[in-house]
């Protein structure tokens, strides 16, 4: 089933075209790495697809009323904002906001989702700690857990693994891959192409606001694309341990 259909999406901010005529589908089981150089339009693409930015073209999510959209897709912004010294538990529970009804507090399902999200991100030991006093990496894990607690068919995350240690990066990518295996879908913008290649089923390569390539990692990270869009050479090899990708040199 299609979880997101984006057609001819374009965004122009202050006279500058940030996103130009982007179309793609996201299906159940997709674990998509959204890749591209800085300023390629990755964040804009996700925000416009969610309807958080004025855009031309259509997005099936942007067309939904806000409360329905919030039950269809979770959004993890890149800016890790935590305004008040609330506990990890309470912060993760905020992910249940779209599911709460009327004046009622969290129901047993909400508590079950909270526990599942804490387990997925390995946060049980930190649950009573004040989130804003944790390390940057730990805060990132807490915010991912918040998005997981939203329990949506689609998760969109903006650079979710930036600033995490290698173990947490891998663990987070595994969580995303597992969501996809369960029949949900994930779109995450990622700069670490090595991790993207290993854990994503599909890559979307953005360059100057356009989709340059969309498909399995091996088909997207070709030497031509790497040279043209990222301006680098790279080593890419299928090994018994899975695909290994390493950028090598900047092309002068």
């Amino acid at each position: 089933m299609t979880l997101l259909a984006v057609d001819h999406l374009s965004v122009t901010l202050r006279g500058r075209a940030i996103l130009r005529d982007v179309s793609f589908r996201v299906a159940e089981g997709d674990c998509i790495g959204l890749i591209g150089p800085n300023g390629a339009g990755k964040t804009t693409l996700m925000r416009a697809a969610l309807g958080l930015l004025p855009a031309t073209g259509t997005s099936s999510l942007a067309a939904l009323p806000p409360d329905q959209r919030a039950r269809a897709a979770a959004w993890l912004p890149q800016a890790r904002q935590i305004a008040w010294p609330v506990t990890v538990e309470r912060l993760v529970m905020l992910g249940r906001t779209p599911h709460l009804r009327g004046l009622a507090g969290p129901a047993p399902t909400d508590h079950a989702q909270l526990e599942a999200a804490l387990t997925a991100m390995g946060l049980h030991d930190l649950r009573h700690r004040t989130a804003m006093r944790l390390s940057g990496g730990e805060q990132a894990m807490v915010l991912i857990a918040r998005a997981l607690a939203q329990d949506t068919p689609l998760l969109m995350a903006d650079e979710p693994i930036a600033g995490l240690d290698p173990a947490n990066q891998i663990a987070t990518m595994r969580v995303f891959a597992r969501l996809a295996e369960e029949g949900r879908a994930v779109i995450a913008s990622i700069h670490d192409l090595g991790l993207a290649v290993r854990h994503c089923t599909r890559l979307i390569l953005l360059g100057e606001g356009r989709i340059v390539a969309d498909g399995p990692p091996a088909a997207v990270l070709t030497p031509v694309h790497l040279a043209r869009i990222f301006g680098v050479t790279a080593h890419y090899e299928q090994t018994p341990l899975g695909p290994v990708f390493q950028p090598l040199e900047v092309i002068a």
Partner: peptide, 20 residues
């Protein structure tokens, strides 16, 4: 109340959680 709670995570996250 509920919207202000969601705003703990910033305007973008709150809006994406259905807060108008």
């Amino acid at each position: 109340g509920r919207g202000l709670d969601a705003l703990t995570l910033g305007e973008d996250a709150a809006e994406a959680m259905g807060v108008r």
